[in-house]
Design a protein around this nucleic acid. Sequence first.
DNA 1: CTCAGTGCAAAGGATTTGCATGCCG
DNA 2: CGGCATGCAAATCCTTTGCACTGAG
Lengths: 147, 147
Amino acid sequence: MTAVATDLHTTAARRLAASGQRYTSSRRAIVEVLVRTQAPMTLPDILSADTTLAQSSAYRNLSELIAADVVHRIVTTDEHAHFELAEDLTEHHHHLICSSCGSVTDFQVPAAVEAELDRALGQIAERETFAVDHHRLDLVGRCQNCG
Amino acid sequence: MTAVATDLHTTAARRLAASGQRYTSSRRAIVEVLVRTQAPMTLPDILSADTTLAQSSAYRNLSELIAADVVHRIVTTDEHAHFELAEDLTEHHHHLICSSCGSVTDFQVPAAVEAELDRALGQIAERETFAVDHHRLDLVGRCQNCG
DNA sequence: CTCAGTGCAAAGGATTTGCATGCCG
DNA sequence: CGGCATGCAAATCCTTTGCACTGAG
């Protein structure tokens, strides 16, 4: 996984290239902010972390990054969407979503549970003729701060 | 569970009353549409299923129903939010979310898997000092129609 | 009577888009 | 040079809100 992190930018560049896009400095800046923060961020979060970014360009670049599977968009009940690096650039994980302040934190479950879950979900998908892209397991509640 | 379904409207009325609200005919109409459809619906879906409803009132009534825990709001990547009956009025279930057409379908997992999952999640919540309200397990992919 | 509920129209707010300019390849 | 990328401002679109009216208790 550390190897992946090392050339994360190379991977990002390659994926963008695959969709005929460039890995410009703005796009790289967004990815760097996400790497640095290590948590799903809203657009305002991203803009304040790097004030040189223009709002519309940030949204547009995020769209490209999402299309290229470099970034993933998380929807919560919060008014803003949250953005984070694609799972395969980090590690498979889940989210703790605070219904009070809207914050999103990552967590992982034991591999055994994850495997069991995948098996069960696989069967269901087959039964429902549904082509699974990925699963999403979140815990909704109140975070430490909102107690 | 069938008993619950029988006096679902009674339950809805009671819960609204608990928040000092009435179970008016519009609200009942919304609940009936949701019961009839048996699937999470968007606001346009609801309006076209019962054309006597006004848009703003529908939104307002849904808010009350959500506050009274009669209806639950599901957020997807789709532009519209989806609404469905609260889980305890139906049964604990999860969602198949189509990333192509945005449709949402229900499914359930074996009780054993569910129990195992709850156990694992409970430990995590404790470790993270997170007060879990509920968990959310969705499968994202392509539905039968979108192949 | 009173006050919650309703409907219309207008406002709000995150996200998207049009367009002229800048810059990489 | 040519076309993608950028930034500003304006437009979009789901959702919420203001306000006057209606109806149930």
